[in-house]
């Protein structure tokens, strides 16, 4: 096969998956529109949680002191990033959390026989935008306000670097937070694990700099949840060493590979339910 046909095939595959992603999103939205009340109550519940997150912002600005070497305005950027990321994570969260149910009831069967990556379908089949809306709005407002108030430069490098680390955070979120849900292939109930993971996510409510040294190392290198919401802000404030810059971009790749490996193991282990 020559290079040209290889690339055209790759391109075709790409557009196909993109089209499927679009369809999943469209269908999820259409299905949700059938239950409008659920959709709006999803928004209001998320607003409730948003209130909790914003109370941290209030505490930090009311205290008015530097925390972990960050000014209140700078901290607002970190919390804003955390809130925005929460919104993005919540888009795929229904897919993740329904995984164990799909395994238990054997509805995976009808997906395995499709000539599309199973992991792709499982990850994006149920997409929910209701929780994205309040979080994205609040998160972006906080980031922009903090950025402006702290008097940080708006240059091509600062903005594109910030966005690059946001994107790397999105990829890392996907791999890192899908992993615990994959345990449902082996365990009867992984509710406890899912609940603990959700709680770990909330550590990002505050910039990592307030935590102890060992906790920071743990959360950056072993279980790199801190990378997700801290690195965009740390990059902006020029607090990343070259090594951390590299690690912040390498970790998502590394964990994606790990996630793929565990997934293929998990599917081999799958014993379809129901006869």
């Amino acid at each position: 096969m020559n290079v040209k046909t290889y690339f055209s095939k790759l391109l075709h595959r790409f557009t196909r998956y993109f089209r499927l992603l679009f369809l999943f999103a469209k269908f999820s939205l259409m299905a949700q529109a059938e239950y409008r009340l659920n959709f709006f109550s999803g928004v209001t519940v998320e607003c409730g949680y948003l209130l909790v997150k914003l109370s941290y912002v209030a505490v930090v600005t009311m205290a008015g002191v530097n925390i972990g070497g960050l000014s209140p305005d700078e901290i607002v950027i970190f919390i804003g990033t955390y809130i925005l990321m929460t919104g993005i994570y919540m888009v795929v969260y229904p897919s993740f959390s329904s995984l164990s149910q799909k395994v238990r009831e054997g509805s995976l069967d009808m997906l395995i026989v499709k000539p599309v990556s199973l992991q792709f379908m499982l990850s994006f089949q149920n997409i929910d935008f209701s929780m994205l809306i309040p979080n994205a709005a609040a998160g972006i407002i906080l980031i922009v306000t903090g950025w402006y108030q702290a008097g940080l430069p708006v240059t091509l490098v600062s903005v594109s670097g910030f966005i690059l680390f946001l994107l790397s955070g999105v990829f890392l979120t996907y791999s890192l937070f899908l992993l615990p849900h994959l345990l449902c292939f082996w365990l009867v109930s992984n509710r406890g694990i899912a609940e603990i993971t959700a709680a770990v996510w909330d550590f990002n409510n505050m910039p990592q700099l307030i935590y102890g040294k060992w906790m920071q190392r743990l959360g950056t290198f072993i279980l790199p949840v801190f990378i997700i919401t801290n690195f965009p802000g740390l990059f902006l404030l020029d607090r990343l060493t070259p090594f951390l810059l590299f690690w912040g971009l390498a970790a998502p790749v590394l964990f994606f590979i790990l996630c793929r490996l565990v997934f293929s193991r998990a599917v081999k282990h799958y014993t379809s339910a129901g006869g």
């Binding site: 269908f27 259409m30 299905a31 059938e34 239950y35 054997g106 509805s107 069967d109 009808m110 026989v113 499709k114 000539p115 129901g274 006869g275």
Partner: peptide
């Protein structure tokens, strides 16, 4: 997977609300 298809009476592939 393109060569065959399976229909299971107790499992469905259709989207319920669409």
């Amino acid at each position: 997977k393109r060569k065959f298809s399976i229909v299971m009476g107790q499992k469905n592939q259709l989207w319920w609300d669409l």
